[in-house]
Computed example of a mutant assay.
Amino acid sequence: MSLVLPSELVVDRFLPTVRAMLATRLADRGLTQQEIAAELGVTQAAVSKYVAGESGGDDRFRDHPETVDTVERIADGLADGEMDGYDALAELLALIRTLEDRGPICELHEEEMPALRGLGCDLCVRGLDADVRAERDALANVRTAARTLASTPGMAALIPNVGTNIGMALPEARDETDVAAIPGRIYAMSGRIEIPANPEFGASKHVATAVLAALDTDPDVRGALNVATDDDVLAAAAELGYEPLEFDAAYEDRGEHLRERFGERGAVPRVAYHRGAFGIEPATFVFGTTAADAVELLGELFDQASGSR
């Protein structure tokens, strides 16, 4: 993995673009190239290139509305003497903080470090704290679980027609926005499993409902996935000591119904299923301490079921 600091992108991509923008706008306001060079702290030769449009730069900054507004404001201030270098620097630092908060600098950073994509990275804004770490870990765990599911031979046979999803809740999740899942669901196509996107929080109400019900019953159970109900898999679960729990598919408040059923069992089962209802495809939920743990158990059940077929 390449290790690139956001500050490198500020120096290499942002600063040259903004200097060029300021040079052209100061020239438009009547400053000489020598005066512009003194204001920007560069050589007159550099200003000549800026004004001639030979400096390159990045259009993401050049076309960014807030960047344009800031440059215009600084150019006006420097040209009429109402702003000095200290004031201009303060304006640019405030702009950089904005651009690092899911703005162009953040986009460039994800391009330079692809490993950051899908993590909802906001290190530049919040720093590395416990909440950020928990969010990052949940997203990474769901991504690993989805890849494991997709790479397990034969697993596509368990993907229901409506698709499946994998979810993992934050430790103190309150609603579906605290549960990471795959946007758009996971589908089987031509015998293989397709993962449409990297995980995001709030991406699946369906799997989040089951995960949150489990979490309310047992704080250690934070992961789950749904697959098609398969009798051989249910039998395999029973054989391995994971007695499946059946619940009613037709309940409108699925979350409350699951909480009641879990309460009757006295624990969150590793496997819970229903046989479907009108317009509802039969589904089975596999639970785990994490999303990856749930997928690992599903693989164990699938192997057991395959061996007895």
Rank of each mutant, 00 (worst) to 15 (best):
V10A: 07
G307Q: 07
A134N: 14
L116K: 07
S2L: 12
V132A: 13
G288S: 07
R261D: 03
D303G: 09
A38D: 14
F247Y: 12
V295A: 06
R126N: 12
N165T: 09
G154C: 09
E243R: 11
G276H: 11
R25C: 02
Q34Y: 14
T43E: 14
G266V: 08
G191W: 06
T164Y: 03
A210D: 02
E111N: 06
D232H: 13
R261Y: 03
E111V: 08
P6T: 13
T148G: 09
E8R: 05
Q33S: 08
L298V: 03
I36N: 04
V286G: 04
G167W: 02
D122E: 12
I36Q: 02
R25I: 02
E243L: 12
A173K: 00
L225A: 04
A291M: 06
A20N: 00
T70V: 06
M168R: 09
F285E: 08
I96N: 06
G41R: 07
A156M: 06
S2M: 12
P160W: 01
G53F: 05
G279K: 11
G191N: 09
L158P: 01
E39W: 08
P171G: 03
L92P: 11
A88I: 01
Y50K: 01
L215I: 01
D253P: 00
L15M: 13
I166N: 03
A203W: 04
H109G: 00
E243D: 15
L225K: 02
Y50L: 00
M189C: 11
L123G: 14
A90P: 13
V47F: 10
V268A: 04
E176V: 07
A236G: 09
R136D: 14
E246F: 07
A188Y: 06
G85M: 11
M189V: 15
M155T: 03
R222L: 02
F287P: 03
V268Y: 04
T152C: 12
Y50F: 06
E200K: 12
V221I: 14
L297H: 01
R261N: 03
V221L: 01
E172Y: 04
T229G: 07
G288W: 00
Y251A: 07
Q33W: 10
A213G: 02
R192I: 14
E100R: 10
S2V: 13
E72R: 09
A236L: 09
R275K: 13
L5C: 11
Y86W: 14
G77Q: 04
G77L: 03
G276C: 13
M155C: 10
L5M: 13
T217F: 01
V51N: 06
A272G: 04
G56R: 05
A238R: 12
R143W: 15
G184V: 03
R143F: 15
R147K: 14
R13C: 02
R97Q: 15
C121V: 08
L301S: 00
A250M: 03
D175M: 01
E135N: 15
V233G: 02
A267N: 11
P160H: 05
A150C: 10
G191M: 09
A210W: 00
V42W: 03
D231Q: 15
